[in-house]
């Protein structure tokens, strides 16, 4: 299995459904000091007139060459053979936070015992033929579970669509 979770930044509206669906799936309770595996950021940028906003839903990206794996001093972070994702063996984690500084996405968080807690790609669901909880819940279709090639072709199709639209719109203008 080589599928992973992608975010279509253009479609994310920061609703947070993915964050909650992940907590429901994984029994994560913030009131017990348990961190979320997924977070939503709102990004505002000042423009000439007002601001631009966009949203990001970010969890472990399951990088192909994961920097956290290389930084982990104990070998607690490894690639899971079954899912192809980056998995944590909590019994090896010493809570040193080396993965925090290694992760380019600011993903690592630590549970009440101080051990790394993160997205496991909903491996049990995926094995059962279901989508990861965050992907399933996303009301805007912003989170996509697929392999890299399919996502690439999706993006290309969208780009082609846009070009077609621009041509069409300009054509209308000339009529």
């Amino acid at each position: 299995m080589d599928k992973t979770i992608y975010l279509d930044v253009k479609r994310c509206v920061g609703c947070g459904a993915c964050v909650v669906a992940c907590m429901d799936q994984n029994d994560i309770y913030p009131e017990k000091g348990q961190p979320a595996n997924r977070r939503v950021y709102q990004i505002e940028e000042n423009q000439d007139q007002g601001i631009d906003i966009c949203y990001l839903s970010v969890a472990c990206q399951h990088c192909e060459d994961s920097p956290c794996t290389m930084a982990c001093p104990t070998g607690a972070i490894r690639r899971d053979a079954a899912t192809g994702g980056v998995a944590v063996n909590k019994s090896l984690c010493i809570g040193c936070h080396s993965c925090a500084i290694a992760c380019p996405f600011g993903v690592p968080r630590y549970d009440a015992e101080g051990k790394l807690q993160k997205c496991n790609l909903c491996s049990e669901r995926v094995e059962a033929g279901l989508e990861p909880a965050c992907v399933r819940v996303c009301p805007q279709g912003a989170l996509i579970f697929d392999n890299a090639n399919s996502v690439q072709s999706l993006k290309e199709a969208a780009a082609a669509n846009n070009i077609a639209r621009i041509i069409r719109t300009q054509g209308d203008g000339c009529n």
Binding site: Y6, L7, V9, Y41, I43, C54, L56, V58, Q61, C63, E64, D65, P67, P104, F105, G106, A148
Partner: peptide, 14 residues
């Protein structure tokens, strides 16, 4: 090399 296979847009925004 660290960037391979990741999503630069998400990163840039973060």
């Amino acid at each position: 090399v660290h960037n391979q296979g990741t999503m630069p847009l998400v990163q840039d925004l973060l």
